[in-house]
Amino acid sequence: MNKLIIDNSVNIEEIIVDSDMDITISFNDCKRNLNIQVMPGVCLKIFDISNNTNNSIVYNIAESCSVVINKLSINCSDTVDVNLNDMNSNIKFYSSIINYEDNEYKQNINHNDKDSISKIINHCINVYDNKFKFIVNGTIKKDSINSSFKQDNKIININNGKSFILPNLIVDNNDIDASHSAYIGTFDEDLIFYMMTRGLSLKECNSLLIKSFLLGSMDLDDRQRDILNSIIEKVNM
């Protein structure tokens, strides 16, 4: 499989992916626009680590593509558009966010053709007493018969952060499968108690729960998991 690495040093605004590919995206302290065109039948895996960014990324996905995105964002206000433009296009999008300041993450998922599938999991740890907002719009157009849209949004407030989730789902076809969920709160007290009865301090419990919350759903290989684990461990929570 082809591999591509995009970071701050690469001055690029459009990528056309016409064969199976692994792309690693690593942006820091920047505001960038990136348009990724995925050509028919391609399998694409994106491993995205963003730190303090205000990026706009657009994915245009063609017929019979399979796209998996694992994105860890630290203190970002990114906007992501996913256009499932043709039949049988399929995306699994796992976004995990560690947030320190007032930020919002906008995501627009557009089902533009039939038999398209999206599975969206957005998890955020809001660390301080700041604001964080998920704005997630799902649109299923009239022609998108037999499409499936599943969306799960969760924000865990570690302190007294003000968090919002705005999940919008606009459906213009009766023969589709769609669901969305939203949770804002803290970790379950019973989980913490159970772990503490085994001798783990509150900090150790939170550390394990944060890692599992942010990485548990992602589709990662061992190397990627180790990278993300070490990033999360370094973040002071």
Partner: peptide
């Protein structure tokens, strides 16, 4: 009732 902990 030992609880389950997803991801840990």
């Amino acid at each position: 009732n030992p609880i389950s902990i997803e991801g840990v």
